[in-house]
Design a protein around this nucleic acid. Structure first.
Length: 424
RNA sequence: GGAUGGGUGGCCGAGUGGACUAAGGCGGCAGUCUUGAAAACUGCUGACGUGGCAACGCGUCCGGGGGUUCGAAUCCCUCCCCAUCCGCCA
């Protein structure tokens, strides 16, 4: 979330930013509640100070009568304080409600508009494959080679779940190892995170688990939720910590399962593995100083490119438009892989996403840093990026690597872990 | 699931109603000594909010919430979390 004082002092800018992002928020209402709250808060502090003075004087009272008189005075002051405090609490809740809805600021270079207005920045190293046959989509390929059982998934857990079988299992593990090796070389600390997290952590990262259109599965009778991404657990890992400036930037990568309800999403574009309720993901996360986050966003995006160039999958990089940014993101780059079986004659489909969330998450999670020899603390900047989301990477690999005879070649970088050069 | 013990500043840890203005230590910063460093010694050193150019002042904060009291880290209620042991278990 944004700093209260910042919103007060830049109300017009904040409102304009919300409008550009297509988020309906009444910033003026926040300003009104917060302004009055501050005035009332001063009253509370005055009354507290007076009451404290009275309390301290009681021990020095000369006689019982004076002591009783001062007790009464103290009681009166505390009651007066409680009344004003109640008003302050009400106003604070009112302001907080608006504050929670206000998204992060936006990078000035981000394209303005909606999903269609994403700006293509560059293409990957691998050209789109030229097929002299009609390519199959991953669902057909998976069926042909007995790689995925959607029917059993639906029976056991419902539509959107699946069993991976045979080489698909080896591919999943190979993709994880492939990503981890590259990230280890890039200085990331590998982590396997919990697959569940407390509501408080989810909302710190910017998810709203109990809302009506939530993407999040919650566990009944507990405060736990299935995580939608390891971004949640990796950010939460350092919640309430004060780091040393020397430790920054901190790079961690987490392996977790990801669970998403995908409420309201269905249709041809969601066929097969593309939009599922559960998948495995290797996620990058970084904590930086404020002046280090822009470079880190480029670093994370560069790693995503390295990963997909290495896999030999064609892709493009896009700069997400303002209206399509999630609340915490200041700027977001997506990699869209070429999926020959998608749509009528192949389409790009999102496979990774990397965001600079500046201090928006850190402020909620209480993650700060301290520089040697300086007083005070500063909120860190947090960034996240997909290394490999297994299900979508698997679509891209299967569809791009299919052969005329129906076999699927295994990308060279995965062969050591898959243990074969082709499937079928 | 059962039993017990815990949650206090960046970290460790003392503190059972009024000088807590939270002891002490570690760490950090500055200085003395030293060619330099280390050691030793001396001093400073929590967070957030608020007012002030500043010195500094005021308020809040001892896991969360509620209560008792003129006054709570301390007493009461409640919830959460952590540790250890037992039971069960991959």
């Amino acid at each position: 979330m944004l700093d209260k004082k910042f919103i007060l002092e830049n109300a017009a800018t904040v409102q304009a930013n919300c409008d550009r992002r297509g988020v309906t928020v009444n910033v003026a209402k926040f300003v009104e509640s917060e302004t009055v709250r501050r005035e009332k808060q001063l009253e509370v502090e005055q009354l507290n100070r007076q009451a404290n003075e009275v309390s301290k004087s009681i021990g020095k009272a000369q006689d019982a009568e004076e002591r009783e008189a001062r007790k009464a005075e103290g009681r009166r002051l505390r009651e007066a304080k409680d009344a004003v405090q109640a008003e302050v609490d009400r106003l604070a809740a009112e302001a907080a409600e608006v504050q929670r809805e206000i998204p992060n600021l936006t990078h000035p270079d981000a394209p303005v508009g909606g999903e269609k207005d994403a700006l293509e920045l560059r293409l990957g190293a691998t050209p789109k494959p030229e097929f002299d046959f009609a390519p199959l989509d991953h669902v057909e390929l998976a069926e042909k080679h007995d790689l995925i059982d959607f029917e059993a998934g639906a029976k056991v857990a419902g539509a959107g779940f699946y069993f991976l079988k045979n080489e698909a299992v080896l591919l999943e593990l190979a993709l994880q190892r492939y990503a981890l090796d590259i990230l280890l070389a890039a200085g990331f600390t590998p982590v396997i995170t919990p697959d569940l997290a407390r509501t408080e952590i989810l909302s710190g990262i910017g998810f709203q688990p109990r809302g009506p259109e939530t993407q999040i599965y919650s566990v009944e009778n507990t405060d736990l939720n299935l995580v939608a991404t390891a971004e949640i657990t990796l950010g939460g890992m350092l919640a309430d910590k004060i780091l040393d400036a020397d430790e920054l930037p901190l790079r961690v990568c987490g392996v977790s399962h990801c669970f998403r309800t995908e409420a309201g999403a269905a249709g041809r574009a969601s066929r097969g593995l593309y939009r599922v309720h559960q998948f495995t993901k290797v996620e990058m996360f970084a904590f930086t100083t404020p002046d280090g986050s822009e470079a880190m966003l480029d670093e994370l995006c560069g790693l995503e490119c390295q990963l997909f160039d290495g896999l030999g999958v064609p892709y493009r990089v896009v700069d997400t438009a303002t209206g399509d940014l999630g609340g915490p993101a200041y700027r977001k780059f997506d990699l869209e892989a070429w999926m020959p079986g998608r749509g009528e004659a192949g389409e790009y489909g999102e496979v990774t996403s990397t965001s600079n969330c500046t201090d928006y998450q850190a402020r909620r999670l209480g993650i700060r840093y301290k520089s040697k020899g300086e007083k005070g603390t500063t909120f860190v900047h947090t960034l996240n990026g997909t290394a490999i989301a297994i299900s979508r990477a698997m679509i891209a690999v299967l569809e791009n690597y299919q052969q005329a005879d129906g076999a699927i070649r295994v990308p060279e970088v995965l062969q050591p872990w898959v243990g074969k050069t082709q499937i079928g």
